[in-house]
Write a protein that binds this DNA or RNA. Structure first.
Lengths: 307, 307
DNA sequence: GTGAAAGCGCTAACAT
DNA sequence: ATGTTAGCGCTTTCAC
């Protein structure tokens, strides 16, 4: 540095006076780096996504990355459009909670393949797409589900059912596997209810439960694979007069509406943070592929009251 | 067009083959337009913000604008940082739900002034900052509050209290004004409880209500200025054994946890849409200032059961 | 150690 | 009607 302190000062003052700001667009063009990370969620509204987002923000803002968020609203085409849009915006990296189709539903992930093709670093969150998006940060859904079922059993359940959406999604598969393992280990009977639609009105949850109730075959407890679904279960069981059926669910009640279900908490915020950290190093190192990273979940054993 | 169809076709095919994509960064540098709109929220988690966001998305995506979202988490400094960050990213326009300080709290909005200074089109949503950010799309909080109180009175309340945060925010001021007007018109007594902290644990809501209860001075009903607060009220009244006190609140219960409060619905999604539409025309016309636009709110008169 | 120049990918204005 | 060029604001390289 041979520029006199005086000159430096003068320049700085002038810059400040005229409100000089380096143009990030020009920087981006020159450096081929936009310092922008794209984020794709199925829905920002779900508390789960919210926490993930918070984790991402806390990690990425200090690292001077901007976020470009878009929502697919559980629609494959919208997700594809959003991803392409983000890629066209030349984001440096992509964080994505991939949309999950129902089992057997037509589903393309050309847009995910395109991410890889275009050599854009990407990290999947909460679930992964085998062979396409393996770099991922996920929760230990297997163990969490297993512990949830164990808690139900410890609470006195002699039979435990499973209720979930029939989605082609790795995290749900793991949960179901955890459920089955717990059941086999305890040598108990089960009852699996898989919903083939997201629509709360349609679907046969109510009729299936009604039949179980009528037949006197209602399990003592259920593991419910997602939070929203747990409230449907809760209401239906209440309506059927099955007040003794216990529920364990993935997700948490708001403090002002405790249902008494066993709650399996997952490290949502940490999921976001870890994914964000990964994407940073991937961008820095020019790496576009990576391993799966599994974070362990918590399960609340202090609230085993059933519904 | 004198280019032969054959040539056009060849060029297009070649472009597709080599995966040619026009660089939006270069386009931005050249055209001085990033086709990006910045969005600043206090918190994405609140259903209110979520709906607004959805409205913004449905309007802005088809118009080929990208969104750059950031969250201030009810922190003035974070908001300022986010806004500056967005401005530095050369967003074409800014949509902002301004952070609201508690009355008397030190508060700067240099960053909002800076938006105006830098001639960036901006629209405030749900509330406005008089003299600084007047271009805004807000709900008719005055009438909504008034109707809410009227519904309580129609439900048999001979006295109606008001509970809200003591925030310096135009929408809350309007709600309080609506409450007062309804009260004066009906020539009824009231009781105002203004909370000076966001923290649920602290604050004197519980003690104030307990005193009213002990003195036998509990109003027959309350207008609660925000959704989160309504659940605190609900729980406290329940704990105090004040089961007959009716509540009207801004916000909605989730379908699986109906509390029976009178719910004042606001046109959140439309708020977002209108603001998005405004920002589009402002960008197109190079306009950076505008009027306030007031959308009327709905109030649910079909659920007047009290708590 | 400092200053000049080239060029990132595009588009608008300009010659042909 | 088509082809060429300058330049958006920055950074990196290369002379000095």
């Amino acid at each position: 540095m041979r520029i006199s302190a005086k000159t430096q000062d003068r320049i700085h003052r002038l810059a400040a006076e005229r409100h000089y700001r380096p143009s990030s667009v020009a920087q981006a063009l020159r450096s081929q780096r936009t310092r922008t990370v794209g984020v794709v969620f199925p829905d920002v509204q779900e508390t789960f996504m919210n926490r993930v987002l918070k984790g991402i923000e806390t990690e990425l803002h200090p690292a001077d990355y901007r976020l470009m968020i878009s929502t697919s609203y559980f629609n494959g085409e919208t997700e594809a459009k959003n991803v392409r849009n983000l890629l066209d915006h030349e984001v440096d990296g992509l964080l994505i909670v991939p949309y999950a189709p129902f089992r057997g539903e037509a589903h393309v992930f050309d847009h995910l393949a395109e991410i890889v093709e275009r050599d854009v670093p990407a990290v999947a969150i909460d679930r992964y797409v085998p062979g396409v998006l393996d770099a991922a940060v996920v929760a230990d859904d297997f163990t969490a589900a297993r512990r949830g079922v164990e808690a139900l059993i410890a609470g006195g359940c002699g039979s435990v059912g499973y209720v979930g959406f029939d989605l082609e999604i790795t995290s749900l598969a793991e949960r179901y596997r955890g459920y089955q393992t717990a059941l086999e280990t305890a040598e108990l009977d089960g009852e699996t209810i898989l919903l083939t639609e997201r629509n709360p009105a349609a679907g046969d949850l109510h009729s299936r439960l009604a039949r179980l109730s009528a037949d006197g075959a209602m399990p003592d407890g259920f593991l419910v694979s997602s939070n929203g679904l747990s409230y449907r279960m809760w209401r239906i069981l209440d309506a059927l007069g099955e007040k003794r059926t216990k529920l364990a669910k993935f997700g948490e009640d708001p403090h002002w509406a405790e249902t008494g279900m066993i709650q399996i908490r997952q490290p949502h915020e940490e999921l976001g943070q870890r994914a964000a950290r990964r994407i940073c190093t991937m961008i820095a190192d020019g790496i576009t592929t990576g391993e799966r990273e599994v974070l362990s979940a918590e399960w609340a054993s202090d609230k085993e009251d059933g519904i």
